[in-house]
Design a protein around this nucleic acid. Sequence first.
DNA 1: TTGAAAGCGCTAACAG
DNA 2: CTGTTAGCGCTTTCAA
Lengths: 352, 352
Amino acid sequence: MRPKQITLSDIAQKLNVSTVTVSKALRDHPDISPETKKAVKKISEELGYSPNFMARNLSSRKSNMIGVVLPKIAQHFFSSIIEHIYDFAFANNYEIILTVSQENAERQVKHVQTLLSMRVDGMIISISQDTKDLEIFEIVKSRQIPLVFMDRIPDIDGVNKVRVDDYGGAYKAIEHAIKIGYKNIAHFSGNLDINIGRERLNGYKAALKDNGIKINPDWIVKGDFGEKSGYDSFMKLYHENKLPDLIFTVTYPVALGVYAAAQEVGMRIPDDIDVICFGDAMTQSFLSPPLSCINQPTKEIADNSMQVLLDNIHNKEDFQAKEIVIDTNLILRGTCIGNLSKTNSRKAKLTS
Amino acid sequence: MRPKQITLSDIAQKLNVSTVTVSKALRDHPDISPETKKAVKKISEELGYSPNFMARNLSSRKSNMIGVVLPKIAQHFFSSIIEHIYDFAFANNYEIILTVSQENAERQVKHVQTLLSMRVDGMIISISQDTKDLEIFEIVKSRQIPLVFMDRIPDIDGVNKVRVDDYGGAYKAIEHAIKIGYKNIAHFSGNLDINIGRERLNGYKAALKDNGIKINPDWIVKGDFGEKSGYDSFMKLYHENKLPDLIFTVTYPVALGVYAAAQEVGMRIPDDIDVICFGDAMTQSFLSPPLSCINQPTKEIADNSMQVLLDNIHNKEDFQAKEIVIDTNLILRGTCIGNLSKTNSRKAKLTS
DNA sequence: TTGAAAGCGCTAACAG
DNA sequence: CTGTTAGCGCTTTCAA
């Protein structure tokens, strides 16, 4: 048998006080005199008391837990986000219940249900790329559980949203590319059902248009947000002999796929084909050449999400849903930095 | 106010049955007739009932939760492990409570205490690199909470352990390196207080010794398991002008640090200096050149850890603590594959 | 096949 | 400052 757990009343008995006194003493309730507190704490230490959160949460009707639903975790963007979320939660005495949908909408639904059953005080969600049905989120909303959508955000009103300026970031990158001389720019665009896919594509289009460059539909290659998608998209254009001079990818993993494909077919980056991506937040890029990108500040995203959520939790009655848009900035490293002459020479070679 | 949560008795009232009946019906207890079950389920759907885990766990005295403590998560090895743990848990109807110590022993202690308070059914732990005090783990053990140490394992008897063959893996790698002609092999060794640091170093030493190569203390550089350590160690040897021909790093991040340092000082891998590392499990290496490594099969590690833990949970009375050692294999990619002649030419250049 | 009684361990509200 | 009473929502006997 599992050894009997020490409870409040065990401590109470030892001291000939009531369980209430012990309960309060342990939580540093001002009701209790310092001496009693000291005595209680001493005994509870000795006995190795460990409060039962289940019981505590049940009777206090709050859980001090925050549920998080992410689509993936073995990926720098999300694992970095989650580390910062943990840091924030830890500093504020909240527990994080992390669930991972693995980009699977059904699983996502189950996870949210579980979090509801756990009676988490709030949720932070980044939706899976195949999310179609939003009913479960409406349920969360109707239960009045504070909710923050982060980065990948569905079309729902009246909930908190924290994201980066996807449109502006994409626009900025393409504008830069044009400035250094690129005209033939493709976009590997990811899933357009998701805001980040849509907005980044829009930013790309707008930047081209505003600079008088015609949009070539062949160069907008739809896929998803993963490595394989980058690889496949590259190979598609390669075999159709339609490769552009520069590829702008919707995420960092997609760019990794491009690197792999380029290597496989013996094309060098950035000499034979150039790349820039949205996302990534590593201080150091270990790719060769180091990949330039539109940076997503993961700490800011995580901190803002947590802050809004906690504000919402502590101030439920009259809380106005917030939308926070975080600025991105272009980080130029070893790609997309103006080696156009080489690119042109490749094209000359190819077409000759 | 938070809207009143639907409870068992709400459903019971609607149907004019007792809460017990509802409770049993919802859990498909054989006591209940099919018709009643159907009716109960129908109503509970309609009402949007969501069982309160707190209450359920409290009264049933089990939580269906497994606590996991990892040192880091924004790192491929751990994030991959955790994804597999989630998969396994999901398939077995367990919830995972993940905590991250950020390589901080104090935080680790707090996390374990929290997991105890949550009354998790079992724990999987990979210890932080600065772990000194093992008391908290002894407490878990004494409470008879099933426990699996994974990968990074402290010296405690009578608990489950799942790890790869660190010694054998290191030995295999060094033996290979010697076979292709290397004699000057350094080891960036990480923290020796932790089993993986110690064992990998031992494997390195043994392989050298068995092949008649003298161990050069200058070439055993202690550090930790992170990128910065790899960078610093490289720079130390570089400035002392003591770089070897090949560096064997204790982890993948340490190798990343080496890549960065080498790039910074303008040395090319593998021509000027060669590298191989322990760990990594990515199907595709995006480094250039692709890094060869001793592979740690994360899925096997995760699955074995979970399986042992569940066995232990379900069979608490007479469970013998298990130690599972998983084989590694050498994955050769673009480094450490026999380009010794070039290395020698570098040395010639350097010393001339 | 169903239900009444009891209790999991804790805290909130109030009274002393 | 301390304690009594009641109950959080559920499950586990055990009796009907």
